[in-house]
Design a protein around this nucleic acid. Sequence first.
DNA 1: AACTGATACAACCGCAGCGAC
DNA 2: CGTCGCTGCGGTTGTATCAGT
Length: 339
Amino acid sequence: MGHRCCNKQKVRRGLWSPEEDEKLVEYITTRDHGSWSSVPKSAGLKRCGKSCRLRWLNYLRPELKRGSFSALEEQVIIDVHRILGNRWAQISKHLPGRTDNEVKNFWNSRLKKKLMAQGLDPKTHNLIPTRQRAANKVACSMSPSNHEPFSITSHDSKMKDVSLEINPPILTIVSPDYPSNCSPQPPFFQTTTSLPLPKSSYDNPSVIWNANSQNSYDSSLFTCVSSIHENSLASSSSSSSANPTGFGLVDENCFWSCSNIVEPFEAAKIFESVPPQDRENHLNKVCDTQIVGKIKGVHDNMEASFDTSSYDLGLVDSTLFPGSMCHDLSSMDDLAWNF
DNA sequence: AACTGATACAACCGCAGCGAC
DNA sequence: CGTCGCTGCGGTTGTATCAGT
């Protein structure tokens, strides 16, 4: 019996042979294959088009990265999963050369168990109930006044993500001109080194590179924050609402990543190669020459192309649990949060 | 060496969304 | 508006390999 999608013909199933791979690669790379349903016949394969597509996308594409996941990739998966849940295709977009299938398998076979071993619920990334006390400790240490943590407000019911309700990331995107003497200060500014962008970029969403190498999470990751000026938010949001905090309003669709601008891993690598004393200059230079110049273009597209696939790498971790906030945890809990 | 359970990875299945008609 | 074909996605299953006994 063949696949339901192509039950008119007898098709092979199961693992692909090297000969089949060769045929498919030869066919795909030498011509415009059009629709996948026509590929098997044209390429001389006894497979269904869906199977060919999957084989190409998940295994044969030349740009795929093989081999085990790095610690950095692992952290990215965990971070993005905390925000997006099981949206593997979206998560894989932050991991160049990795497929959704690969990420999903890695999550199910390794990361899920790893989180559980650390006492974390792999669905919500919260500590499991028996560790509620430790979780409360974290929440308290976040905010002396014990107010609600900053959270994402979704303005787009269509894109509503249950995982955000279960575990709202403590994330604030700040307006660039948020007064520095106001309290409370957004955690981003409390805990990290931010390098302001030129005034001229304030009318555009701007990128602040957080070079906080003391971050206990992953010093190789940048926090890349899109700080959205309220003007641009007003135009990008279909509905308006009060903003009592004075912060730039945030919705899920405001997530746009440095990957739109500079490949984050590349940026991180480059940054790490810069001597610590030169990093500020480096960042200013990078911001000027590589980022700000492109922001306008990104901004122009933002209204039409806001996309949850864009995500601020490391942002949640560095804002949610900066190194100093882990200090009063037990060593076990510390481990749990710091991987 | 043989067996068995665990693990990792590849592939399949079913469904939803979309555009063409 | 309904149907059809195609694509993309997430959940699940199948299978090869590994590790322990």
